[in-house]
Amino acid sequence: MADFESAEPCRGFWDDAARIRHGYLADVTTQTLVLKIAEEVGEVAEAYLGMTGGNPRKGVHKDRFDVLDELTDVMLAAAAPMLDLAGGTEQAERHMAGRLGFVSGREVADPPSGGWYGSFVAPHVLLRREDGKVMMLRRAGTGYRDGWLAPPAGRIEPGEDVLTAAIREAAEEAGVRLRREDAQFVHVMHRTARTLPGPCHAISDFWFRFDHWEGEPHAAEPDKASEALWIDPASPPDDVIPHCALVLAAITRGEPFTVHGWG
């Protein structure tokens, strides 16, 4: 059983996993690490049977802390090859965050078969410079796709139309003042979003482009975004949120409408 009193303070799961990978596991191949996961899973089952007395011959000879230790070993066994395959701690953490968001959506009940089936409306803002690059914010501390890039975006508040909401979001998130007459509608994506609460599992993303603004664009909400970057929309980096990357590609092709995730 782990000695909780003497354990070093946790420095972050992926940092600790990397320290182990580059420490006593440094000479172990990725293939061996992947195969090791199955062995660790078997030890979890053995510990659980030992805790519950599932093996009549041995009886109860383990406790819940033994099971917790073995479960932790499974997580670490999986983390080591994930670091190799993802290419580092940040990439592994980003992949896990995306996967958790996807899997958590499976827990949401299907919408009722009768009645209205609605969509949330989400305004998105593209600030475009003279060189054609557009601004993205690196999400941080939001609980959704943290570490990924996305444009200023959000929800409609009571009394707002979608363009009013877009202008407000740009002011809040990017620190710029926009005018309605400068807005260029460029795209709408209707996509599924099964992680949303209640019977509504879809979003209509309205994208507006602005070539003129007042103020210096920056990450104006440091508790929600760590930095602002200017990217080429025709060749976005890999860490743009996937559905946003699809929209940028569609805008580049001149397509005003797409659907995503409907099977």
Rank of each mutant, 00 (worst) to 15 (best):
V34H: 04
R194H: 08
R129M: 00
S113D: 10
G50F: 02
L126W: 02
E93Q: 14
D110M: 12
M75Q: 09
W116L: 13
L163P: 04
M189H: 01
A80D: 04
E172D: 09
N55M: 06
R253M: 07
S119R: 09
A79H: 00
A86L: 05
H187G: 12
V74T: 11
A38Q: 14
A47Q: 10
A165H: 03
D211E: 11
I231L: 11
G101R: 07
F210G: 07
A97M: 02
A153F: 03
D211N: 12
A122S: 10
F102D: 03
R194D: 11
L33D: 11
A17R: 07
F120V: 09
A228F: 00
G53W: 03
A45Y: 06
R64S: 13
D238K: 11
P9N: 09
F185W: 11
P236C: 08
L196Q: 08
P158Y: 00
D146W: 01
W262V: 13
E160K: 06
M82L: 08
R179N: 05
V28N: 07
E5I: 15
G118C: 07
A228M: 05
V240N: 13
H124N: 14
R19C: 11
K133Q: 15
A140H: 06
Q184D: 03
V240W: 00
Y144L: 15
D66Q: 11
F4G: 00
E70M: 04
P256T: 09
M135V: 02
H201V: 12
A97I: 01
F185P: 10
V186E: 03
R253C: 09
A220T: 01
R155C: 00
E107G: 14
T72F: 04
R145M: 14
S6Y: 00
D131H: 12
G115K: 11
D63L: 03
H22D: 15
V125S: 10
P9I: 03
S119N: 11
L76I: 12
R11S: 06
D15F: 06
W213F: 02
V34L: 07
D63R: 15
R138Q: 15
G114Y: 12
Y24G: 07
L68K: 07
V34G: 00
R179A: 12
F257W: 10
H61Q: 02
D131E: 14
L76C: 09
K58M: 08
W14M: 04
P256C: 06
E214T: 14
R11D: 05
R94T: 00
D232C: 05
E93N: 08
A38N: 15
A79Q: 05
A38W: 04
P237K: 13
R179D: 07
D15L: 13
G105K: 00
E216M: 07
